[in-house]
């Protein structure tokens, strides 16, 4: 059984949604110190929960022995957040659009769509040795 490990701007948690709130509290705690407006703060916080949920459920398949690592880089004009799992990756192109036809009323399948909508840049990095990194950027409003 793993545990939460925190650094200055990073946190890693075992792969269980039981830890989602811990991640959110950590990330929002850091963001609040930057003086972001509520809307920007919520955009980033929502996106982090989407990426972490996907990492836990789809990447690491809820295996508590595997970790999800969240890293925040706070720069002058932007925040860069990476969420890394130990899973086998996926094909982002294969995801069906959640805003077409019958998909609109599905209970699941909106996570990636929402984080792409709320963040300014989103990249998926599939590591050759395994594991997926979601890299998200939000430019700070001045």
């Amino acid at each position: 059984m793993g545990k939460i490990v925190k650094g200055k701007n990073k946190i890693s948690v075992p792969s269980s949604l039981d830890y989602l709130r811990d991640v959110d509290e950590f990330v929002e705690g850091k963001l609040k110190k930057l003086g972001l407006d509520q809307s920007q703060l919520a955009d980033v916080a929502i996106s982090v929960t989407e990426a972490v949920t996907n990492a836990i459920v789809h990447g690491n398949k809820n295996d508590r022995g595997k970790k999800v690592k969240i890293d925040l880089k706070i720069e002058k004009l932007k925040i860069v957040i990476t969420v890394e799992d130990q899973g086998d990756g996926f094909d982002p192109e294969s995801l069906s659009s959640p805003v077409e036809g019958e998909n609109i009323l599905k209970k699941v399948g909106r996570g990636v769509f929402i984080l792409k909508s709320l963040m300014d840049k989103v990249n998926f990095i599939f590591q050759p040795e395994g594991g997926t990194i979601v890299k998200m950027v939000k430019y700070l409003k001045k």
């Binding site: 919520a42 916080a45 929502i46 929960t49 989407e50 949920t53 009323l105 599905k106 209970k107 699941v108 399948g109 909106r110 996570g111 769509f113 929402i114």
Partner: peptide, 17 residues
């Protein structure tokens, strides 16, 4: 409610259905 994510939307859709 401060905010919700896709899971929250799923909960609302599930409730509606």
């Amino acid at each position: 409610v401060d905010w919700m994510n896709s899971t929250g939307l799923g909960i609302l859709i599930s409730a509606l259905t």
